[in-house]
Write a protein that binds this DNA or RNA. Structure first.
Lengths: 132, 132
DNA sequence: GACGAATATACGTCTATACGTATATTGACG
DNA sequence: CGTCAATATACGTATAGACGTATATTCGTC
């Protein structure tokens, strides 16, 4: 992956906020949507953009698409994600997103699903809807 | 300076190459132009873009405009420039630019002017043209 | 003051992309 | 199979920005 493509992914605020969230762990589309307060199409399109360029990976679990940062990042991507992590602490938008993220992850069903995803285990929970 | 603006500056290849060169020290427009092999207008416009957003500073010395990275960078900018520095070593374009930069800086008149600029000293050289 | 070198700006065109609305797809479940 | 939830895609519009051509500006020199 070329360096310029990394920056092209980072140069939009919505994508920046998405990646910032994914630094904390995998998330499903509907939660990203809720946290950012953007429309479903918009989030989905930006995620597609990121996926096409190898900035994120997606995996379907039942009805939900779980997005995450790639398991294996190039050194360039790794360096930039680390840099992003450091830089995001100062701006209010990102802190706000993190606060909302905590709320979402504190929901038991959500946490269960995401934990299973993280471990690569099949999702066994029987929650019908993750989105409230 | 907002983080997103930094990335917007970095997301164009020409600007990325310019900033990469400026990491090595101040340069005048005509040399950036020669090194990148781009038209004068194009380089000038990208430099304006960068200057408007505080990514570079410019100072006139006689006929030449010397561009450089800001004396005082925000922590975010600093972090990203450092990251850029690290990431640029792998791609051929940047290595090629560096090679051409060595040639330019090896010209005595150029080196003299740039050194005086670096020290904040008035430019005393009497070279008529820095561009060959 | 005319001229040349270095640089910047104006203006027009073209392309990428951001986003809204509508519609399609995919999976679970009764 | 119909329906719903979650997600993706198609299509149209608007805007940022990349770039070329022409022209202006700024400075030094004769």
């Amino acid at each position: 992956m070329k360096l310029i493509q990394i920056y092209q992914c980072l140069c939009d605020e919505t994508r920046l906020r998405i990646l910032h969230l994914l630094l904390r762990g995998p998330l499903c589309v509907c939660h990203i949507q809720k946290i950012l307060g953007e429309s479903q199409v918009n989030i989905s399109r930006h995620l597609s953009y990121l996926k096409e360029r190898g900035m994120v990976e997606a995996e379907r679990h039942q009805n939900w698409m779980i997005y995450r940062l790639p398991a294996k990042c190039s050194p360039e991507l790794e360096a930039n994600l680390k840099c992003l992590q450091d830089c995001c602490t100062t701006e209010a938008v990102f802190r706000g997103d993190l606060a909302k993220l905590q709320k979402v992850v504190s929901i038991r069903e959500v946490r269960e699903v995401l934990e299973q995803v993280c471990c690569g285990a099949p999702v066994l929970g029987k929650a019908k809807s993750l989105c409230r």
